[in-house]
């Protein structure tokens, strides 16, 4: 599944399109940024309600390709600007994290195993 298909296939609203469109390598669902840091897979999609620029900072540091903001949470402009600067795709939906994870699972589920090694 490609990043742009989060918009074209899933109907999530794209908030910023300055990113290199490429295949997603899995996904992770969490609102705790330390948990994201520890467990999200590089080149994956992050499903979350944390709509602020620190989420972009975390995504950029560990190489998350796309963020889906759930529950229709308002996304501040500075988050979108940060995402544009870092080339991280941002999508928006009224669906919950649970629904979005379920929708993405058939296409990306296989890529989520062994996300990050734990000691």
């Amino acid at each position: 599944m490609k990043i742009s298909e989060l918009g074209t296939e899933q109907g999530f609203r794209s908030l910023q399109s300055d990113y290199a469109d490429r295949g997603l390598g899995g996904g992770y669902t969490s609102d705790l940024l330390s948990d994201v840091m520890a467990n999200a897979k590089s080149e994956g999609v992050l499903v979350t309600i944390q709509a602020h620029k620190n989420t972009v900072a975390v995504a950029s540091l560990i190489g998350i390709a796309a963020i889906v903001i759930c529950n229709g949470r308002p996304v501040p402009d500075d988050m979108i600007e940060a995402a544009r600067a870092e080339g991280v795709a941002v999508f928006h939906t009224d669906k919950s994290q649970f629904e979005v994870s379920g929708l993405l699972w058939p296409a990306l589920g296989a890529g989520t195993e062994g996300a990050a090694p734990r000691a």
Partner: peptide, 9 residues
């Protein structure tokens, strides 16, 4: 509420 303070740092 910002997603920090999970006690994982």
């Amino acid at each position: 509420s910002l997603g920090f303070g999970a006690g994982m740092g």
